Simulated scan of single mutants.
Amino acid sequence: MATSQVQPSMLSIFVVFFCVYGNVVYGQFTKFDKLTLPRGVIGPEAASFRGFMAEGPFTTVIDGRIMKWQGPNIGFQFCDGTTDPDKGPICGRPLALSFQPITGLLYITDAYFGLLVVGPNGGLATQLAGGFKFASGLDVDLLTGYVYFIDASGGGPAVSADSTFVLVPKLTGLRVLKYWLVGLRANTTQVLVNVAGNPNKIKRAERLGEFWMAVSVGQVPRRPPITPQGVRINSNGVILQTVSFATEFFNKTISLVQEQSGKLYVGSRFTDFIGVYSN
C-alpha cells in the first residue's frame, strides 16, 4: 500500500458546511431504490456529489466513462464512448471520484492512469500523476484542498473534516488505520478499528466526526455467501451502526457507501445500478 498527496494549483482556506451535522438522525435504512445504468453498462464503484446543491450522483463505470444522474426522467447521462470492459488499458478504468467544493474540480483515481482531474465543465481529464500499480481511491481535504489517494490497497481513504488525520482501509488486513497529519502524533499511524469483513472505500458521514465504510464479509478469503454491509464509525474507531445490504446485493462485494441528504448510496462493480437506501 502507498498513499500520496497532491496539492492542486487552486486552493482555498475557506469552506462552507452545507449540512447541519447535529440534526442528522439515523435509522435502519430499510427503504430501497435503484439508480439504474444504461443497458449494457455495469460497475458503478463511486458516488460523488457536486456543489452545495448536491448535483448527481456522478459515478464511474467499467468501460472508463463517468456518468451523471439527471433525475428519473433522464437517468444517467454520459459522453459517447465504448461499452467494452476490455478497453480499460486504452480508455482507463476510473475507480473513485471526489469534488473540490470550492473550485468545482473533479479528481479521479484510475487503475491504469493514476490521478487525474477534470474541470467544472467536464471534458477530457488531465493526468496529474502516473506510474502507480493500481490507484483505487481518493479524498479531497475540505480545508486545504490537498488530494489524498491510495495505490494498490483495494480501497479509498477519508480525510477528517478538521484536516487532522486520514483513515486508510486495509482490504485484506480487516482493519482501518488512522494516519495523523498534525500535532504530537503527526506522521504516525495507529490501528483505529478491526473490522469483521474486508473494508473498501471510507467516506465522511454527514454528522461531523463520523464515517461510513463499505465492508464485504467473506470476500477474502472467500466464504460465500458474501455479506455486504455499511458500517458507521466515529473518529475514535467506535462502531456506531451496521446496515446490511445482503438482500439487494446478494453475494456481491460492495465498493462504496456514500451518505447524502440522509440517504446511503451503495456502489458495486458487479451491478448495473447504484442502490439508494433511506429511512
Rank of each mutant, 00 (worst) to 15 (best):
T82D: 07
P38H: 13
A125R: 04
L105F: 10
D151R: 01
A111V: 05
F99H: 03
F273I: 03
G267W: 06
F249H: 02
G22L: 04
R204Y: 13
P38V: 11
P228D: 09
Y112R: 04
G183E: 00
Y148S: 00
K133R: 15
G173K: 05
G197H: 01
P157A: 01
I108L: 11
F250K: 11
L116V: 09
K133N: 14
D86R: 15
P120H: 01
W212Q: 00
A96H: 08
F32H: 13
N121K: 12
W69G: 06
A46Y: 07
I202F: 02
T82W: 00
V195E: 01
A158E: 02
P44I: 08
A135E: 05
I13N: 14
A135L: 02
G137I: 01
I226H: 10
T164M: 05
R207L: 08
T59N: 05
M53F: 07
N279S: 09
I42G: 01
Q5M: 12
G267L: 11
V231N: 02
V168W: 06
I90K: 09
C19N: 07
L116N: 04
G197N: 13
F270S: 15
F52M: 08
Q28G: 10
N198S: 03
W212G: 00
L11N: 14
F165D: 07
G145Q: 05
P224I: 10
L37N: 13
A196T: 12
R93D: 05
Q260K: 15
I62V: 14
K203W: 04
G218K: 04
S12A: 09
R39G: 12
A186Y: 07
P157G: 03
Q77K: 15
S98F: 00
I239P: 04
Y112W: 11
P221C: 04
F52H: 08
G131H: 13
D63E: 15
A135V: 08
Y112H: 10
W69N: 13
F17S: 12
I150W: 01
G275Q: 05
L124S: 15
V243G: 05
Q260M: 13
L97V: 12
F132D: 06
L192W: 04
Y107G: 03
R65P: 01
V182P: 15
G209Q: 06
T242R: 00
A205H: 08
R50T: 08
I233S: 02
F49Q: 01
P38R: 06
A96D: 15
S136E: 11
F18A: 15
F99R: 14
T188G: 01
E206P: 12
G145D: 12
P228K: 14
G119V: 07
T59R: 02
T60F: 02
N251S: 08
E248A: 03
T109K: 03
L106W: 03
G197Q: 03
L11K: 14
W180Q: 14
A205K: 00
V41H: 10
R204V: 07
G88Y: 00
S4F: 15
L181C: 03
V24P: 00
A54D: 15
N236Y: 07
D272Q: 10
Y21M: 06
A214F: 08
T103N: 09
K87H: 11
V238H: 13
S244P: 03
G119E: 13
